[in-house]
């Protein structure tokens, strides 16, 4: 357990002296670690314990923003149960933002986009891979890195069109019979999701 202690301790002290704690780093910069005054006072009160580490001390820093726009976009596409794409270099992704389908190329302005149920396509040369996303967020960073986070994402060929038709009819019926606001909203979501799947399958 304490095998790494001496290494971690010496590293954090060495790095801390070079960076002031008052300048806050952006996520695209190399993360600053603990400041030296904190480490010194920590050592006074707890000489046998390592100073606390933050997650940024353990994570690989994001690559810096290059001055020229790179030719490829780096995509991280994660689901709660799987990492679909990790650091994959592609030409373009088209994401289903709430404001409409959004094409993301290298050098895109940094944005956070909320996603709606819809189709996401990953373009890699002539190869296009399509997923249906339920909802989520896309975080586009200045250094041409895109993090796409979805609750559920499935390849299009896994979808059963007959189930979609059944679901759509069911929720359209529910929408007319709904009495409370909540029931109405649930039926509305049902109709929207199934219509989006339908559109994705036909388009």
């Amino acid at each position: 357990m304490f095998k790494q202690a001496s290494r971690l301790l010496s590293r954090s002290v060495a790095v801390a002296s070079s960076k002031s704690a008052t300048t806050r780093a952006f996520s695209t910069e190399v993360p600053s670690t603990l400041d030296s005054t904190f480490v010194e006072s920590w050592k006074k009160v707890a000489p046998n314990m390592d100073p606390p580490q933050t997650p940024s001390a353990f994570m690989k820093p994001r690559p810096a923003t290059p001055s020229s726009i790179p030719t490829k976009l780096t995509v991280n596409f994660v689901l709660p149960y799987a990492s679909e794409l990790s650091g994959k270099e592609v030409d373009m992704v088209i994401i289903p933002a709430t404001t409409g389908q959004m094409g993301v190329l290298p050098g895109h302005v940094p944005t956070i986009a909320e996603l709606k149920p819809g189709i996401m396509s990953v373009h890699e040369g002539t190869d296009i891979k399509k997923y249906f996303l339920s909802s989520g967020f896309a975080l586009l960073h200045a250094n041409s890195v895109a993090d796409i986070i979805a609750v559920e994402a499935v390849p299009l060929d896994h979808i059963d069109p007959s189930q979609v038709q059944k679901g759509l009819a069911e929720f359209q019926q529910k929408l007319t019979s709904a009495t409370t606001d909540l029931e109405k909203a649930e039926a509305q979501i049902g109709v929207e999701v199934h219509s989006a799947i339908n559109a994705a399958l036909s388009g």
Binding site: S134, V151, E152, V154, H158, I159, Q163, D181, A185, G190
Partner: peptide
């Protein structure tokens, strides 16, 4: 407006997508 949170909304969406799979 109907009083749902984003988590509720996204879980409903995810469930509907799951139910449409082969």
């Amino acid at each position: 407006a109907a009083g749902m949170t984003y988590i509720t909304y996204s879980n409903i969406c995810a469930n509907l997508v799951r139910n449409c799979l082969k």
